[in-house]
């Protein structure tokens, strides 16, 4: 009985947290020095967490003047970045080490 209860609690918790994650957790991957997705749409006034996974072997610096972010992500590593809440507008970000290809933007509506 106790075991079932624990499993139930764990399941409910798991569902709740995974739902909460999907609502404000945005996954971005870096591959071949490009962001995927390169453009992200967000509603205004929402706080989100960017989970940036660098799948390249080389390090990258995730940088954005518009968002005031500067974060080094080593090769084959990921990093989380808190963003917002943001006003409507276009916020560009780029990879400092590969500025020609690593470009992206968050579009807030």
């Amino acid at each position: 009985m106790q075991l079932i209860l624990i499993i139930l609690v764990a399941l409910t918790f798991g569902v709740i947290t995974s739902e909460a994650r999907s609502a404000d957790d945005i996954a971005i991957t870096i591959k071949d020095h490009r962001f995927e997705p390169a453009e992200i749409s967000l509603p205004a006034g929402q706080k989100v967490t960017l989970s940036v996974a660098n799948q390249d072997a080389t390090p990258e610096e995730f940088e954005s003047d518009d968002l005031d972010i500067e974060k080094v992500i080593a090769g084959q590593q990921s990093a989380t970045i808190q963003v917002g809440p943001l006003d409507a507008g276009r916020y560009e970000f780029y990879g400092e080490y590969h500025e020609d290809t690593a470009k992206g933007a968050i579009v807030v509506k």
């Binding site: 072997a57 080389t58 390090p59 990258e60 610096e61 080094v72 080593a74 090769g75 400092e96 080490y97």
Partner: peptide, 14 residues
Amino acid sequence: GSEIVLFLYGIVVA
């Protein structure tokens, strides 16, 4: 300097 080292390391790895 750590940013330079990382950048140069990336060049060598690539």
